[in-house]
């Protein structure tokens, strides 16, 4: 059996002292990743950076804290245009989705912070605008394995909120595909370290055209039986959008950790650590979690941006 690397607080103290950066080690290089810095994502050559677009707009939430559909559409358009480099929004979406695609929009229905119907409908609207027939589009979460559209899907759009999570540190885009396997509990071990392996399953492999990490009201800490308390949810008014789910998740995690530092006034690492984001990079080569290999483009409001 392969022996696990022992990682201790003392190692962080040593690294922090050497780098004279205090808690920054926790912020940018989660514990185990810091010790695996020599490993690289094989599918991402040194010169190629993963582009992640952070788009924020304070008008995206109404006075009840609900997303405003029109603003969501505008924000997603802006992000996709930046991501694809196309001259306008429509051509951007058309560069991602073809009229003959069968499209599954993988959502997340967790009752306290769902993807939201506004976000789901905005994504569906743009898939329709790209020329896909309505019958070839489905939005689903827990029923994807039984959903005929998902069973035949040629393209997937992955959209979910980021939140603190008991098993995996944070709920992520990578984790959102856990409903594509019939045995989710088998992926809970070792802080969900093997989640990225699901992306190799035939039902999803190579099909994801867009990843949307919903950062409208993320949750940076969880307590209580349902791991939810509005105290630890804040309005961030954003979306993180990209082709590389690992890069998007790693960027979202930096925001979550920055919020935790701001709120708690001390480095309080997520427990369990969000190990699956980094194993997605170093073991499963799904993308890159290394900030130096991520090109972060920011659009819109930068107040309290935390990154």
């Amino acid at each position: 059996m392969k022996k696990k690397t022992l990682i201790t607080r003392r190692e962080f103290i040593k690294r922090s002292s050497l780098a004279a950066v205090g808690g920054a080690v926790f912020l940018t290089k989660p514990e185990w990743a810091a010790l695996n810095a020599g490993l690289r994502a094989k599918s991402f050559p040194e010169v190629q950076k993963s582009k992640v677009v952070l788009v924020r707009n304070k008008d995206v939430l109404n006075s009840q804290g609900r997303p405003v559909y029109e603003v969501v559409l505008d924000m997603l358009d802006a992000a996709v245009k930046e991501l694809t480099g196309q001259p306008d929004a429509l051509s951007s979406w058309k560069s991602l989705i073809k009229p003959d695609d069968i499209v599954g929009i993988k959502s997340n229905v967790w009752s306290y912070i769902p993807t939201t119907t506004e976000v789901e409908n905005a994504l569906k609207k743009r898939v329709l605008d790209a020329g896909v027939r309505e019958a070839s589009i489905a939005i689903d979460d827990r029923g994807v394995l039984r959903n005929p559209v998902f069973q035949k899907a040629t393209a997937l759009i992955n959209a979910r909120p980021m939140r603190a999570h008991h098993w995996s540190g944070v709920g992520t885009l990578i984790k959102n595909y856990i409903m594509f396997v019939p045995d989710p509990p088998n992926y809970h071990g070792d802080s969900c370290a093997s989640l990225a392996s699901i992306w190799e399953k035939p039902l999803v492999k190579g099909k994801t055209r867009l990843n949307v990490l919903v950062m409208l009201t993320p949750q940076f800490h969880g307590v209580g039986p349902h791991n939810y308390n509005p105290k630890y949810v804040w309005s961030y008014y954003g979306f993180l959008v990209g082709f590389d789910p690992v890069a998007v998740d790693a960027t979202g995690l930096r925001i979550i950790q920055a919020k935790r530092l701001e709120f708690f006034g001390e480095d309080r690492p997520l427990s369990p650590p969000a190990k699956h984001i980094f194993t997605a990079d170093t073991q499963y080569h799904l993308g890159t979690a290394d900030p130096s290999k991520i090109e972060l483009v920011k659009i819109g409001d930068d107040q309290d941006i935390l990154i």
């Binding site: 022992l6 990682i7 607080r9 514990e31 427990s271 369990p272």
Partner: peptide
Amino acid sequence: HIWLNSHFFIANENI
């Protein structure tokens, strides 16, 4: 030991 790490990270193993 996991709950120890929740509040004060010591090590990833149960040392």
